[in-house]
Every structure is written in C-alpha cells, then in structure tokens.
Amino acid sequence: MSEGRLLAAAGFWVVLWLPPVRSALESDMAVHMAVQLPLLIAIGVLAAPPLRRFEPRLLADADWLGIPGLVLAAFATSLWMLPRMLDQALADPLAELGKFLSLPLLGGLPLGLSWRRMPGLGRAFVWANFIPKLGAVGGLYLAAPTRLCAYYGVDQQAEAGWTLITVAAALGLVSFVAVFAGRPRAMFAPHDGPA
C-alpha cells in the first residue's frame, strides 16, 4: 500500500516533467499557478506517509507541533509564486529543476509529515490563513497596473487573478461546509495513510 503511494508520487512527478506536459501546463499563467504548482506540492504530500518511517527520530522530535515543517513548506511554496521565479522557471532549465525538486521535497513533504503533528486547531488556522491570502493574491494580480511576468501578458495575468479568487472561494465554501456541517474530517484530519 505505502509502496504504491510512493510509486504513484514518483510516476506523477515524471509525467509532470515530460516536456509536452510541462509546456502545456506552463503556457498559461493560471494553469501554471493553479494546476502545476499545487500538483507538485501534492506529490510531496502523497509521498509523506510511506516516507515517514525513514524520517530521522531527531528531526521528528524537533518538529514540535509541526511548526518548523509548516514554516519550511510556507517558504518553499511562496518562493515559486513570485512573478520573478515564475519567469525564471520558464527561462532557465536549472531553475525549473529547482522548482520541480523543491516544491515536492521542501513544500509538500514537510507539510505532509508535519500535518499529523499539528493540533486540530493548528490545521484549521493553516486553512483559514491560506484561503483568504490566496484570494488576496488573485486580487493583486487583477489590480496590478503593469505586467508582472515577462512571459505572460496582462490578459493572462488577469485570468490567473480570477482563477486564484475562484479557487479561494471554492475552498472557502468547502471548508465552511466542512466546519459548520460537522464533517471536518476531509480537510482537518491528520491525513496519513488510509483514514
């Protein structure tokens, strides 16, 4: 079971790395930001449960309440959302490789490993911060007076803005229902192996 997850994660990674898939997911700014980057992070999250038994005991202990892991994931994922880094990933194959390695390994993996160590309220805090900020970034893209990425036009930028706002609204609705309808397991449970 766990080997299957690991294999699936590696398989997804290879598929995303295939040149036709890469160019398809990167030719549009909205798809680049709202599909490719989250998928790369998801690959790391998917690989976390099978890799947990290889996590050094020292590291697992030091990751108190999952805080350092969460902070690491926040840095690694924000870095690749900077317009300059989106450009860089398109212009420089080395930066692209850096994106493909750091998003799963420094973003998704620590998030997956730390998620279980976080208190329930901590997980809720993460969602409650992430969702409005995602919407705010979308708003900034819509309001930006200039083109932010050299490789994407203003119309793509606006489209990316609307996409992020839509995703934020959808996630907000789902989390609202999850919390208020009393079925928060899907979003707030310690995802780790079969629930």
Partner: peptide
C-alpha cells in the same frame, strides 16, 4: 521538544535567505 528552537531557527534563516536571494 528538544531541537525545536534550533530547527525553527534554521528553517527561518534558510527561508529568509532564499526569499532575499529571489
């Protein structure tokens, strides 16, 4: 827990360095 503060400091320093570089 033991190691929490050093690990957090390491992550913060590394993260800020990466953001500053970018």
């Amino acid at each position: 827990t033991r190691g929490f503060i050093p690990l957090l400091a390491l992550v913060l320093a590394g993260g800020m360095a990466a953001l500053s570089w970018a």
